[in-house]
Simulated assay, not measured.
Amino acid sequence: MPRNYLRKASDRCVVTDEQLEAAKLLISKGASKRKAASQVGLKESTLRKRLKAGKTATSMGRFSLTFTKERETDIYKYIKQSDDLYYGLTMQNLQKLIYEYAEVNKITHRFKTSSKLAGRGWVYGFLKRFLELKLRQPVPTSIARAMGFNITQVQRFYDKLQSLYNKHKFVPSQIYNMDESGVSTVPKKIPKVISVKGKKLVGKIVFLN
């Protein structure tokens, strides 16, 4: 499906999950389908079609979501966890992961079997459903830096720094910044990864070949 697909104008009724569940509840309590449809603001014919086909509000004509809301939520959580661990997924990483996820779980999909990748259109659609996520440019991070940047190691660094200050009585003119050595241990350019909007620092573990 095209990334910016616009559904053609139609007089077909759009059904929400809330309407469908409310109608099911009324029917389970003895209400007729006509009465249930009227109370939740739907046409009786629309409600009957939804109940007969087992469709939900995610169905949009011949287009429907590949995964259920629960499965997409699991994917969302995995993406966030990967990002937190400095292993943010690139566009292609996610496309490959989603294809394999659908295949392993025997989920019917429209992804291309030749490339074994989910379409970019699916990824952009997913990002629209989870607005907290966005493709962002990460900061290349060496694995040594990632492993060393935790509360225990940082506290040890400042404890040793304070000990040296107390022992040698350094004055400001004797303190130099040695970070800018000009020797890079990581690639300078890496692909964008899917991360959370508003996150101050997006890092990604990289290795030199």
Rank of each mutant, 00 (worst) to 15 (best):
A37K: 05
L20F: 00
F149S: 11
V202A: 09
R7G: 09
K29G: 03
T68E: 14
R12S: 13
F67S: 07
K128Q: 14
Y176M: 04
V186G: 02
F111G: 01
S38D: 05
S59G: 00
I194Q: 08
F207Q: 10
A102T: 05
L97K: 12
T56F: 02
A146I: 03
L131S: 15
N150T: 13
L25Q: 10
K200G: 09
S163E: 13
D159A: 07
N105Q: 12
V154S: 06
F207S: 11
Y165W: 05
S173V: 12
P191S: 05
K167M: 09
T90F: 03
K8M: 08
S114N: 04
P191I: 07
I27C: 02
L47M: 08
K96A: 15
E100Y: 07
L20R: 04
K160G: 06
F130R: 15
V206W: 02
N209P: 14
L20P: 04
F130P: 09
N177K: 01
T58H: 11
E103T: 06
Q174N: 07
A31M: 08
T56Y: 01
G88W: 09
G198D: 14
Q92C: 05
D11V: 14
F63K: 02
R145V: 12
K112F: 02
K49G: 07
D17Y: 03
T68Y: 06
Q81V: 11
M91L: 15
F149Y: 11
Q174M: 09
T58C: 04
R7N: 05
A53H: 04
N177H: 00
L26V: 10
Y5G: 03
T58R: 10
G30D: 08
R7A: 09
K189W: 01
R129N: 15
K35R: 10
L89H: 14
Y165I: 13
I98L: 15
V206G: 02
T90W: 07
A102S: 13
V183H: 08
D17T: 11
K200E: 14
Y101C: 01
V139S: 03
Y158Q: 02
Q19R: 03
R7D: 12
A57G: 14
D179L: 03
R12P: 01
K55R: 12
R7S: 11
L6K: 13
D84P: 01
T66K: 00
K52L: 08
L6I: 14
T73Q: 13
N105L: 12
S38P: 00
K52M: 04
T46A: 09
Y124D: 12
R129G: 15
T66Q: 02
R136C: 10
L89S: 11
K112D: 14
A23R: 10
L89K: 15
K192N: 11
F149G: 10
E21F: 10
